[in-house]
Amino acid sequence: MEDLPNIYWSHEEESINIIKNTIISDKLAEEGLNISKVCEYILGKGNLGRIISGDLDVDRMDYILRDSHYTGVGVTYDFHRIVNTMELLNDSVVIKEKGIIAVEGFLIARHVMYSRVYLHHATRSSEGMLKKAILDLLEENIVTIEDLVKYDDIDFWRILREGTKFTKFIAERLFSRNLYKRVLELKWRELPEELRHEILGKENAISKIEKEISENSDIEEKYIIVDASPLHMGKKVDVKILLKDGSIIPFEEVSTLVNSLRGAQLDHWRFWIFAPKEMVDNVGRVARRVLGLR
């Protein structure tokens, strides 16, 4: 839900809310844990915060292995080696020098999962369809953000199938795997530089393009998905390495692999426009005109 346009929701803040307002806080207190500290760590703050929210946090380490297993993509990395070479030094989490290769293995595994799974066109299309359906439920006041947070999978699919005409349409298509089709697919170097900067730099650029295509094609925005791959490798990897001589340096200074992966992610970056099969031709013609493409 954090990716929904014009909707504010934070899973970190929701986690803190659950801890503070349920029996969990009592259980943590019984174990002698400081509730304020725990909440601070969830936000990525404090001396252990980077373990919970960082480039090498437990969430990322978990979902890479779990998603790899359930999607059948044969990637793995040495999770135990990373954990065993972690150390808390001067209120900062560091990785000992002997854990460098294990961290590189994790970054490679993450790169493969993004390239083959998270950024696959079917994944992006289905996720885009779900976002459109959720927004429709919210706009029609059928559910609230607070409702969605409480739903399990069964509740969510029930409300999707019983919601609006559009959400029923989406649910049926998702279950039959009749996804929105690719209207347009452009690689990093195929997209005009000015348009690329606008898409990556402006928060509402995607919504603006969807609206313009909708207005010029007489097709509702909910049937048009404009999508740009997220860049999973940032300008730096926030991991510190503890060398044998006791000095601490950034991970990039001991691994040339980081820059290679940062460049490689652009090879798999895509700008997509999706629409139902029966609308592809119309949306395609208008989209090219709106984007100034031949």
Rank of each mutant, 00 (worst) to 15 (best):
L4K: 08
E12Q: 14
S15M: 13
N17I: 00
I19A: 01
I19Y: 00
K20S: 02
K27N: 12
K27R: 15
K37L: 14
V38F: 03
E40F: 03
I42W: 04
K45Q: 11
G46K: 08
G46R: 09
G49L: 05
M61D: 10
D62H: 15
Y63N: 15
R66Q: 14
S68D: 03
G74T: 07
G74V: 04
H80N: 08
T85H: 02
K98G: 01
G99M: 05
I100K: 06
I101S: 13
G105E: 07
R110A: 12
H111G: 01
H111L: 03
S115M: 11
V117W: 09
H121D: 13
I134P: 06
I145K: 13
Y151W: 06
W157F: 14
W157S: 10
R161W: 04
G163M: 08
L174N: 03
R177Q: 13
N178W: 00
R189S: 15
E190L: 07
L195D: 11
E198Q: 11
K202W: 01
K208N: 11
I209P: 01
S214W: 04
V226Y: 04
G234D: 05
K235P: 00
K236D: 07
L242E: 08
D245L: 07
G246W: 04
S247R: 15
E253M: 10
N259F: 12
A264K: 12
W272G: 07
I273L: 09
A287N: 04
A287Y: 01
R294F: 04
